[in-house]
Amino acid sequence: MIVDKIKKREPTAKRIQNKVDIPVGKWVKCDKCKEIIYKGSLRENLSICPNCGGYFRMHINKRLESIIDEGTYKKFDFNIDTTNPLNLEDYPKKLKTLREKTGIQEAVSSGTGKINGEEVVICVMDSGFLMGSMGIVVGEKITYSIEKAIELKLPIIIFCVSGGARMQEGIISLMQMAKTTSAIEKLNEAGLLYISVLTDPTYGGVTASFASLADIILAEPGAMIGFAGQRVIEQTIGEELLEGFQTAEFLLDHGFIDKIVERKDLKNTLSKLIQLNKN
């Protein structure tokens, strides 16, 4: 079923001969080296550019596939939708279109699964869905997952990618920061392990809530991570930012993450950390 949905995402590749120099469909341009890359080779290579080693953002299903032991992922039976609290006219339409395009229901998927045999609760966010922004669905699903981890006495892993709180749901989005944070307080009381993995980009209300509150914070190399966006900072201080500002390496240097881990090593690092945290 998961594979079906991925297939549906791909638009038919008919415009390769188009005058636009970026072919669509089966081909994609690497942001980092500007090479045109065959999507199939990306898929076989953890969405890493075969030319320069640059990381592409990962679809939820690809991420799960790369971390969770085959056949062990059980999605939580908790499917919810926003009530559009600001009554925006075009917002539900936008969500519908995105669901069709991405094959996913919302910006996070969560469930239980095994990592090299270690049972965990896992949440994976997806930047393809309104830049992974957190509205009520994301906030509720993260909170539900934390509560499930407490109930099942399991470690919880959250793969973060987000532009921050979702503008379309206004103050209700902001309040998801308080909700998820309060749930982490419960997790701490229960003495359970929480590992967050920050991927490109992790910003705003997600950085300023659950992403930064894990026992162990990992990040992918080169991921952009921060609270304020770079444009806002530049406008505020009136100067350009230096290369490397707000990268995972910058955060490591300033003491805000535990470790940078390459994508190919994430699964084994996670299972090792889980084992080392067992009594």
């Binding site: 992403a211 921060g226 609270f227 304020a228 900072i233 500002f245 910058f250 300033h254 003491g255």
Partner: peptide
């Protein structure tokens, strides 16, 4: 405050 120092010292955290 959205500043360089604020980010360096972990505003989000």
């Amino acid at each position: 405050y959205p500043g360089i120092g604020a980010e360096e010292r972990g505003q989000g955290e």
